[in-house]
Write a protein that binds this DNA or RNA. Structure first.
Lengths: 207, 207
DNA sequence: GTCTATAACTAGATAGAC
DNA sequence: GTCTATCTAGTTATAGAC
């Protein structure tokens, strides 16, 4: 395995766990068992390393998600909101095949991107991968045409909040569920629990 | 105004904006216009300062929220979920009287506590202020008795995620709403928008 | 490409004068 | 209680030998 990939793998799990600010290049290179200077040789800076970690996932997820949403948008019958949100399940879970713990790592990283580092990652994602958002909005509009553009805007942000926050504390939540309820849950279970919640929230009656 | 309070005020707004990890004691003391050494003199350490900032809000909010939830729990008729969640509105908004931007600062800090600093703040809040959670769970159980304890646990965390995430990016969201939809919204409006969303999410049908 | 060594800087914390 | 000065340890980043 190349040095570059060893760094990406180590950075990914440390970033997901401790945030971007909370992780030093020294921790990354020592977990990756490569030299400290290698990060700057291969990526130029810590900021570029963060982008590279996220891009590796987005390039894997984005086409799958596009395809999945396209099916929803092009089907004859009007989709339900549950169907729209369920379109995320397979693309997200396929990240687990792509990389060990891929789904939860990716979603945690996404959460970090919105809270760490004053939104530079949010800017990066929305400018580099805008189609994902556009397609999603279209799908929601088909499912619930009475929702105004403003309401879609607000409720989609509520949805992102629910998912991102849940995923960024998913390890802790799964631990609590295990100790308090003897409930053994994995990331797929969490996704299946959160979808009815957000679908119902987005579909809430208007005033 | 005392040095101690100047530090608390400065720390609060910097922490809310840039996170606990992202804010240095030097930034805090220079915004507060006090000496660097004053933090360690008055609070002992940065960690203790974080606790002090949160405690100031929790001690204000907690009794108001308790009273508000008690009314819901003791009323004759079974409450709706909308009523339960609406019990949060006044106590949260009263933080704006207590401190400038109190509502949004507090909710942003709460969000930071779940993602920064590996959950030490979550531990602090749940052990120091357990009644808040207990009363809330009781109210939800009255409104929706079919929900199991596990489901309540998960859905309440989804709710926290929605609210906390929304509030921690509320400034950005209100700006976008203004420029894209000519919609002038304030923090109270955002709260009124989010409540039907979470009430409907918590009330989603079981499988 | 990979290493050592180190520059240049920032962090939290503290000793001791006033 | 408040200050300056400083310590120790951490950070990112880079220069230059191999």
């Amino acid at each position: 395995m190349s040095t570059k990939n060893k760094i990406l793998d180590a950075a990914e799990s440390l970033f997901a766990d401790k945030g971007f600010n909370g992780t030093s290049l020294r921790e990354i290179t020592s977990l990756a068992e490569v030299n400290l200077a290698a990060v700057n040789y291969h990526f130029g800076s810590k900021k570029e390393l963060i982008k590279a970690v996220m891009s590796r996932y987005m390039n894997e997820l984005s086409p799958n998600l596009q395809a999945s949403l396209l099916v929803i948008c092009q089907q004859e019958n009007k989709p339900t909101l549950n169907e729209v949100f369920s379109a995320f399940i397979d693309p997200l879970l396929s990240l687990n095949v792509f990389r060990e713990n891929g789904t939860s790592n990716f979603l945690q990283l996404l959460g970090r991107g919105y809270t760490d580092s004053q939104g530079f990652l949010r800017w990066f994602l929305t400018t580099q991968y805008p189609e994902v958002i556009t397609n999603f909005v279209t799908a929601v509009q088909r499912a619930y045409p009475e929702l105004s553009a403003e309401d879609i805007f607000w409720r989609l942000h509520f949805t992102m909040g629910t998912v991102i926050f849940t995923m960024s504390s998913s390890d802790a939540l799964m631990d609590i569920a295990k100790s308090d309820f003897e409930q053994q849950v994995d990331i797929a279970d969490v996704i299946r629990k959160v979808i009815p919640f957000v679908a119902s929230g987005v579909g809430a009656p208007l005033r």
